[in-house]
Amino acid sequence: MKKNISEKIWMFIKYIALILFTVMCLYPLFWLFLASFKTNQELYFNTWGLPESWSIVNYVNAVVKGGVVRYFGNSVVIAVSAVVVAVILGTMASYAIARMHWKMSKLVYNTFLLGMMIPIYGLIIPLFSIFKALGLLNTHWAVIIPQIALGFPMTIFIVCGFMRSIPRELEEAAVIDGCSALQCFMKVILPIAKSSVVTVAVVQFINIWNDLLLPRIFLTDSEKMTLPVGLTNFQAMYSTDYVGMIAAVIMTIIPSIIVYVLLHRQIMEGMVAGAVKG
């Protein structure tokens, strides 16, 4: 009986902590949402209250002056194409590293992981020169390609981890049935590894969607900019239009949230699987 009570108290503490953190997670979002209806001065003098009027002028500004709709389209193009290529090629490489027999596989694996250890800020200038030489500056490729290259380490880290946990027997059976390596990959391994692939795709989509640095530097034409860059358009030389920026921020985070809410089940599964055997 005694145990039951302590268990109950423990349960109570757990719930308090969970609810507290829930509030902490949601409140800032709620605040951003409210702030998006305020004027710049209200932001400072009525920071935590309701806006005086539910005027959508900030959103209108964000769309008209800030060009948010156009940026949105560019963001989708860049994020989707980078994720698709990075995940397909990364998964293929993972397969060879995790399942196939060759001497260099460990070395190649470690070389890829090196990419997780470099800050992207250090690569900007050499990349800029490369893209200039290839004539790709100010095209979406200049953002997509590095995102692909830098997406590999994470993809390979997680997908390899998952694939290594799949029993050898499955493939052996397939090979005896006359499958080629490609068929083994497509028909045996990929269906099992699906959830880890989805996880990687979602995490990368979110990263690329939120990335500010690459589009900021490699794109010059405002027609080609992405959403987060649009946010900085509200920062003028001597002052910042915070409420306009917040309205744009709201429009930026909504897609991330939708993607996450739609796919969170798969993300969980993928994490389970991918993380289990690293």
Binding site: A93, V108, T111, F112, L114, G115, G122, I130, P146, F185
Partner: peptide, 17 residues
């Protein structure tokens, strides 16, 4: 399986490093 990813990675990540 490996080369497409490795080549892109070598040019756009390893070379800058």
């Amino acid at each position: 399986f490996v080369l497409p990813a490795l080549i892109i990675y070598a040019v756009f990540a390893l070379f800058p490093i």
